[in-house]
């Protein structure tokens, strides 16, 4: 078990502002004892990665409902690699068609949590996979 609280940055990428999901996930992770930095909406890949590094997070959770994930996620993953922080666990939620999930994973996204996901599943996933990343 890593020392201290698990630090997670939750944000929305792109122009879509619908935040019902991210606010719920933020609360659920906080209820589970994690330190959650809510990065807000309309984040660009650049300022998202900047915040992640600044806040020294263990994981990033992103919500994309607009369909822009195919363009934005590869950029995020590339920036994380270039900044030497690709050990940050990246998970994504939103409206992601099942056929896009393998593609996102190829880019380095750890897991995609689609519509209907139970927040307990997300908490469990982060806890188990942070351990993997830090050990």
């Amino acid at each position: 078990m890593p020392e201290g609280k698990i630090r997670v940055l939750i944000s929305k990428l792109g122009l879509d502002g619908h935040d019902r999901g991210v606010l719920i996930v933020t609360q659920a992770l906080r209820d589970a004892g994690m330190e959650v930095i809510y990065g807000g909406i309309k984040q660009t890949p650049e300022n998202l990665v900047g915040t992640a590094i600044q806040e020294d997070v263990d994981a990033i959770g992103l919500s994309i409902l607009s369909g822009a994930h195919t363009i934005l996620m590869p950029k995020v993953m590339q920036l994380l690699r270039e900044s030497g922080v690709d050990d940050i666990l990246v998970i994504v939620g939103g409206v992601i068609p099942p056929e896009d999930v393998p593609k996102l994973k190829e880019f380095g996204v750890a897991e995609v949590f689609g519509p209907g996901t139970d927040t307990n599943e997300i908490v469990k996933y982060i806890r188990e996979n942070i351990r993997a990343k830090r050990s």
């Binding site: 792109g14 122009l15 879509d16 607009s66 369909g67 822009a68 994930h69 195919t70 363009i71 934005l72």
Partner: peptide, 8 residues
């Protein structure tokens, strides 16, 4: 607007 045009 990259990735966003005409999507929704």
């Amino acid at each position: 607007s990259e990735g966003e045009v005409g999507r929704d």
